[in-house]
Nucleic acid binder design. Structure first.
Lengths: 113, 113
DNA sequence: ATCATGCGTTCAGATAATGAACGCAGTTTA
DNA sequence: TAAACTGCGTTCATTATCTGAACGCATGAT
């Protein structure tokens, strides 16, 4: 399943390091190789990424994932959408933390740690 | 699967409305009835929730989910842990938004919306 | 030539999530 | 009172999703 979370994360990582391998991507993302492969293909299918070959001196032939113009353009929107969603979660939690503090009779200005 | 996300959300919802039904909980959480049932049981199993019956005037006999003393105590920790995790995500995204703004040559003080 | 390495790809098996269907217990209707 | 109805928690076959070992291939090393 390709969610906004992985759309965002993969586009970001690929943009930073186009020669990244699927295995490395999987490791960074904390997901399996199979899922990584699936998500990359999905991003290629919808035209956000494209694949090209490149010669790697030390390593063998490898792929390179590049953001298409569409990918570059949509990445911003995807990121914004994802941020908005996360911001909402974050604010809800902040409110909950405040409630907990009030319930515990604390001063309310302590740091979460 | 019972994750911190659902530990937190369920404990919160149950605390606010102990007489909530599994179906209503499922709807609010955006998950299936089966998963809701599974998560509630898991929370009972680990001693964070307990079940008791109550008489509901209009409706039939129903259950009531109550936080145990352990549940009340651990809810704070679970919430804090979940917040910390979300805060990290949120901060990473904020940084990414900044990068996007810089790349787009914007002024950097626009609101996300 | 042979081996070793690392790549993307595949897919059988494991894991997780779904929601229709069930039995039960109150409430309403006939 | 009996029968139909409602909404509850529970179950579990089905479906969706994820995993990672194994494969073929291309390169570099021996």
């Amino acid at each position: 399943m390709l969610t906004d979370e992985y759309r965002y994360k993969i586009l970001k990582l690929v943009q930073e390091k186009p020669e990244i391998s699927q295995r490395e991507l999987a490791k960074v993302l904390g997901i399996s190789l199979g899922k990584t492969n699936f998500c990359l293909k999905a991003l290629v299918d919808v035209g956000l990424l494209k694949v090209s070959n490149f010669r790697n001196s030390q390593n063998k032939l490898a792929y390179m994932y590049l953001l298409t113009p569409k990918g570059i353009e949509e990445k911003t929107g995807i990121t914004m959408r994802f941020l908005k969603y996360k911001m909402q979660e974050y604010e809800n939690l902040q409110a909950e933390i405040e409630e907990l503090r009030r319930a515990a009779g604390e001063s309310g200005d302590k740091e979460v740690e």
